[in-house]
Design a protein around this nucleic acid. Structure first.
Length: 424
RNA sequence: AGAGAGUUGGCGGAGUGGUCGAACGCGGCGGUCUUGAAAACCGUUGACUGUAACAGGUCCGGGGGUUCGAAUCCCUCACUCUCUGCCA
């Protein structure tokens, strides 16, 4: 969440940033928060004064007791009782105000970076670059949902039977393609300096709050209510939360982690052609890269992540483009996001396969993720993450773009991982 | 799942209801000594909030209670360990 000191000291900037993100009534809400903050601090200092008085009297009572002045001590008790009662009343008021303040702060999204273009929808995203050749398909080329049936490599019906829609079963060469991609992505990430981790794929509530999925995206996660655990929507959640409540030694920065996990998304309310086949699933595999960076280096880190992700797409020989998300399309917690999209030739559309974001201090503030700066003060770090990469749409693009009348050619870089060069 | 023990600062580990944010040791940092280093010695060393700066307030797993006063007593939840059970 945003830091109160920033709201206080740079109010205009905050309001402008929220407006750019198309946040409604930004000025009013910020003013309301500052008002609550003002009330909170006034009450707090009043409360603290009472508490200080009571504390010092209690201390004196202790000394009197020791020196045998029992009667005198008794006479002071009434006074502290009264002080305590007043203080208690104040602290009750305080906790309601603090709760309101907390709720209001949780509702505010992150502020966009200055390079974020204005805009409302994905139409307004800025195309940063486009690369790779879009292949010419032969007459009768198929969309991936027909290819997977033709070659019997991914089975939606079977998934339907054992679980439900959006939970496909990968089979034969399809299953091996999954495994090859995961290994390829992890190997590449390790070469790029990321440490591999295998985190839990269920997380507790505190972790959900830490990275910002809770409270606002509650309904998008699968929730195991008996144990109050959530299935992760992305490895970002467990991997970033490993650093919750820590002061990271400066010499360990930047922290670079990678991990493969299944990801689970309820994505209620999406239908139609957009979600056919592998385009949108309830369960999918993803390799994630996560960085924790010094504030002044985080945008450098984001560029590094972006070009790393692009290098994967180049190696897979997929045509892609990079978008800089506009204010309206930017996620709740992000300050700047690059989306990478590959071209899915048979569908004739771009598919998002990665999203790399800088969250600046937004997550770090919730996570209490800090370092000691040069002057010895604790200061919030910046967190970043990106998909490198999400499998299903990559699979869709590989299948569609490389199809021939007598089989689907696999990208060369995967051959050693696959043990075959062609599906079919 | 049952029985018992435990949860204290970066780590280890004391702690009696009263001047305890917490002994002591290790580690870290600064210094003396040294050509340099080690050893030794001296000093220093938690977080949050708050203030112009002091002051003040809060924090000994989380939450609640008893008391003038709680790390210390009570309740409750979570977690860890040991034994038993079950299990890949």
């Amino acid at each position: 969440m945003l830091q109160l000191t920033v709201l206080r000291e740079q109010t205009d900037l905050v309001v402008a940033g929220l407006n750019k993100k198309n946040y409604k009534n930004a000025a009013e809400e910020v003013a309301a928060i500052l008002d609550l903050d003002q009330q909170r601090r006034a009450l707090q200092s009043e409360h603290d004064d009472l508490q200080a008085k009571a504390n010092s009297i209690s201390k004196e009572i202790g000394i009197m007791m020791k020196s045998g002045e029992r009667d005198k001590a008794e006479s002071y008790k009434a006074e502290t009782t009264e002080l305590k009662q007043k203080a208690k009343a104040l602290s009750e008021q305080l906790s309601t105000i603090e709760e309101d303040l907390q709720k209001a702060l949780y509702k505010l999204p992150n502020l966009p970076h200055e390079s974020v273009p204005a805009g409302r929808t994905s139409e307004d995203n800025e195309v940063v670059l486009e690369q790779g050749e879009i292949p010419e398909l032969y007459e009768g080329a198929l969309p991936h949902w027909e290819l997977i049936q033709k070659y019997d490599i991914i089975d939606f019906e079977l998934g339907n039977k054992i679980t439900g829609a959006g939970f496909p079963v990968y089979k034969k060469q399809g299953a091996r393609l999954q495994r090859a991609l995961i290994n390829f992505f992890l190997d590449e990430a390790m070469k790029a300096g990321y440490i591999e981790v295998q985190p839990p794929i269920m997380v507790n509530e505190a972790s959900g709050y830490g990275t910002g999925q809770l409270p606002d995206k509650d309904g998008q996660m699968y929730h195991a209510t008996a144990d109050n655990l959530y299935l992760i929507p992305t490895a970002e959640v467990p991997i970033t939360n490993m650093y919750r409540d820590t002061i990271v030694p400066v010499e360990q920065l930047p922290v670079k982690n990678t991990g493969h996990t299944p990801c689970f998304r309820r994505e209620a309310g999406s239908w139609g052609a957009d979600v056919r086949g592998l385009n949108r699933l309830h369960q999918f595999d993803k390799v994630e890269i996560v960085q924790i960076s010094l504030p002044e280096k985080s945008y450098e880190a984001l560029e590094e992540m972006s070009s790393y992700i692009q290098s994967l797409l180049q190696k897979l020989e997929l045509p892609y483009r990079v978008l800089r998300l506009c204010g309206g399309d930017l996620g709740f917690t992000a300050a700047l996001t690059y989306d990478m999209e590959v071209y899915s030739t048979a569908q004739g559309r771009w598919l998002e396969v990665s999203s790399a974001s800088n969250f600046e201090t937004y997550q770090a503030n919730r996570l209490k993720l800090r370092f000691k700066n040069d002057s010895g003060k604790t200061q919030l770090l910046h967190t970043l993450n990106g998909s490198a990469l999400a499998l299903p749409r990559i699979v869709a693009a590989i299948l569609e773009n490389n199809q021939t009348p007598d089989g689907i050619n696999m990208p060369k870089v995967l051959h050693p991982y696959l043990g075959f060069e062609k599906i079919g």
